[in-house]
Design a protein around this nucleic acid. Sequence first.
DNA 1: CGTCTCTTTGACAGCATTCAACGTGTGTGG
DNA 2: CCACACACGTTGAATGCTGTCAAAGAGACG
Lengths: 225, 225
Amino acid sequence: MGGQLAYRLDRIPTPPLLQAKTSEEGDAGLGAAGSVLHVAQDREIYAEGAAASAFYKVVAGIVRTCKFLSDGRRQIDAFYRAGDLFGIEGDAQHSLSAEAVSDCTLIAYRRRCVDAARTGGAGVDQLFDHLLRRLAQTQDHALLLGRRSALEKVAAFLVDWADQSAGRKVVSLAMTRQDIADYLGLTIETVSRTLSQLERDGLIDMPTARQIRLADLQALRDLNA
Amino acid sequence: MGGQLAYRLDRIPTPPLLQAKTSEEGDAGLGAAGSVLHVAQDREIYAEGAAASAFYKVVAGIVRTCKFLSDGRRQIDAFYRAGDLFGIEGDAQHSLSAEAVSDCTLIAYRRRCVDAARTGGAGVDQLFDHLLRRLAQTQDHALLLGRRSALEKVAAFLVDWADQSAGRKVVSLAMTRQDIADYLGLTIETVSRTLSQLERDGLIDMPTARQIRLADLQALRDLNA
DNA sequence: CGTCTCTTTGACAGCATTCAACGTGTGTGG
DNA sequence: CCACACACGTTGAATGCTGTCAAAGAGACG
């Protein structure tokens, strides 16, 4: 567990640089104005511990939220896709950092929308739903991290990602093997080996490394009985 | 990962049997009446998937919430102590099961208190805080499960538990080694071995298996840099 | 004092990691 | 158009951490 240091520290992204555009637009759901911004691939959106002055909605692209240990080990908490909210905090500070997996378009909302909702304003219900769903997802993730084998983890990841991809059987992975590994609590090599094994066993096809066809979706699901 | 089946299935608790007393008492915080009930050690409070008709506050004793895989593998999500709330769900069903680690006294609140709060009623703020705190804790737990070694996990558990025990240096563990293992994503043997190693190294003393004195709290904290 | 559960310890096996080398794909410049 | 660099991904060999299987120790309780 020691040798990851130099290796992993290399991967820590550059400081935040939000190339915000000045456009403003309303948002029916939250009833609050938000400013659109673009973030380049691998750029940090906010750091763990940074002031939580805003939260975000993904318009396009993929976002990851993660935590780091002091020696560079990383745990990805979640990937966010178009339509997802992230960065809502109770504290004044963000408890995770957020980074762009691919080039992203986001809408930033002012934090006080959350505070307003908490005291009974509009959007309470929506925020509640979001928090409850995130909590349930994080609990499922903990079960996966604590009690599943590498094979089960990778299968679960593929099935989840496929479900979110409108049920299509070919999933396009926006993230690297390193991202997948840090999401599943594995190493990049184990992820790669496990995918190869799934392909040998006929459960998946990999036309390219980032394009995965789920040839036997049922078998993949069964791995997570 | 296979041989756990028969072994683990033995540990699944008996069906719910809430020996509710008929007393009623007001609760200043939530502004809602709750009924007091007692649950014996290892009894189930509610099952995963059961109707979430109520949520609970711990008056005395320790509660665990957990998830099971179909083969009996268990992941404990959290331990709750006097004053803690648990069982608040967005869905109609509980996403985790809850069990009494020790004999417990609880207050059950009607679920509609949550629904009322969601639509802007009293207690919104309190519920929000609870959810946000739980989410942050679960995210930390995921980092521990995914990226920490056995030694780091056990040290983190002891430090956490000590923090919650009013900072005293001698912690009384209400739970078994099996509970600790299922919380940390380890086996009972690894937990035991790791505790023995910490004792050999002088970081802790174990007068009894359930009484642990943190002899070198700083060193324990340093294990989780 | 025996029984039962919980815990500890030992020996061994196996899965995931580590370390290392080799492919593969893409973009750039000659 | 090809050569090269570079990042990303795959594969192999060996180590090691944690799990598995087994047995013995320690308390609690009747």
